[in-house]
Simulated assay, not measured.
Amino acid sequence: MSISIDRSIAAEAATLRAHYAQTVLPIWRGPGFNSALQLPYEAVGADDHAPLPAARYRAMACARQLFIFSHAGDAAHAEQLFHAMRRYFHDEKHGGWIYSVDAQGAPLDTTKDLYTHAFVIFACAHYAMATGDRDALRVIAETALLVQARFAAPDSLLHAALDADFSAVRTGPLQNPLMHLTEAYLAAYETTGEPSYETTLAQLAGSVARSFVHAPTGAIAELPIGSADNRLEPGHQFEWFYLIKRAGPAIAESGLERELSRAFDFAQRNGVDRATGGVYAALDEQGAVKDATQRIWAQTEYLRALATRARDEDLEALALQIPRFQARFLHARGWYECLTPAGDVARADMPSTTPYHLATAYASLTN
């Protein structure tokens, strides 16, 4: 890579981080935070940052905010979020974490959702790493044990959702919660050093490889292979690519690293709009665009994947992609959550869950 490209990426990444620190984070310390409940609102308006009327608060959204403030070094705000997450969402009767509470903080949706549990582990791992909080370490261990015991499905997979007391399956295995559980176990291992997380990662990677890899492309499908109306999301191929590279030896025997190298090329070739650099939401199994919406999280995963693969051609693409992303998706008051290929705003509000994607992508860019 040339020195000029290196300097260009570093300067562009610094601009992204400045926007995040000066524009994005203050929203969620201020108007995006319900100080009475000590929970983040689900979303705020893009123009005035006024919170949208609160119909619910989700555990996953609270956990993502716990991550971003732990990652940002704001221990005081992270501590509020950690205690609020435990107070509102932990199920003292059945164990685990409920999906949501209502506008007054009373239980609303008591489904036991794997995606939620993955983010509790992930966020607590980062909070514990930042603060040394021993209660957070206990939450990680207890939640990980519960996930393996209660969500277990055939072939070392895990169900996506169960009812409140874990007695009935609501949704079978899905790609997305399994991906975020992979991310969570990586964070738990890095925080605790417990070798059991490496063992669990290896089992999880093997089961994903057997059940979700689309053989012609190497892509990881959203539904188990053979399911009707399946789809391949370019953003998830980029996200998995980063996670598998980071996991390294823990997942080597699964073959996922080899498959995701093919999936990266498939997603880049078919899922990135050549005119704008925008990443499409979904492709079909032949590579045709199934959903042309361009969501900001998929753009951030493309940036992170380019920085992770880091071949000369990737870094050249990254140097072009960062300013395209900045011009297309960021603005002085925040960001655009979803755009059409033509650049029209398809979703006008700014969700509290999106800063997680910004933070993880920006952290991977060259310093």
Rank of each mutant, 00 (worst) to 15 (best):
S4P: 04
D6E: 14
A10Y: 07
L16G: 05
R29I: 14
P31M: 07
N34R: 11
S35G: 10
A36M: 15
A43K: 09
D48L: 04
Y57Q: 03
R58I: 07
R58E: 12
Q65E: 12
F67W: 08
I68G: 02
I68E: 01
G73C: 04
G73A: 03
H83T: 11
Y88L: 05
E92Y: 01
H94N: 15
T110Q: 01
Y115W: 06
Y115E: 00
Y115G: 00
H117P: 01
F122P: 08
A123C: 06
H126A: 10
T131V: 06
A136G: 09
R138Q: 14
R138M: 14
A141P: 13
T143A: 13
V147N: 04
Q148N: 13
F151M: 15
A152D: 09
A152L: 09
P154G: 06
H159S: 13
D165K: 11
P173T: 09
P173N: 02
L178K: 04
M179G: 08
H180F: 05
A184C: 08
E190Q: 06
E190T: 01
G193F: 02
S196L: 05
E198H: 00
T199M: 01
A202R: 04
A205S: 01
A205M: 01
F212C: 05
H214G: 06
A215Q: 13
P216N: 14
G218R: 05
I220T: 09
N230Q: 03
L232I: 15
Q237C: 11
Q237W: 12
E239L: 13
W240S: 11
Y242N: 10
Y242T: 07
R246T: 10
A247V: 08
E257D: 15
E259Q: 14
R262S: 12
R262C: 15
A263F: 09
Q268A: 13
Q268M: 11
Q268W: 15
R269V: 08
V272N: 05
V272Y: 06
T276N: 10
A282G: 04
G287Q: 06
D291P: 04
I296N: 04
Q299R: 01
Q299I: 02
E301L: 08
A310M: 03
A317S: 10
A319G: 02
L320I: 11
I322K: 05
Q326Y: 01
A327T: 07
Y336K: 06
E337W: 08
E337A: 03
L339V: 08
D344F: 00
V345R: 07
A346K: 09
T353L: 09
T354H: 07
P355V: 12
H357N: 07
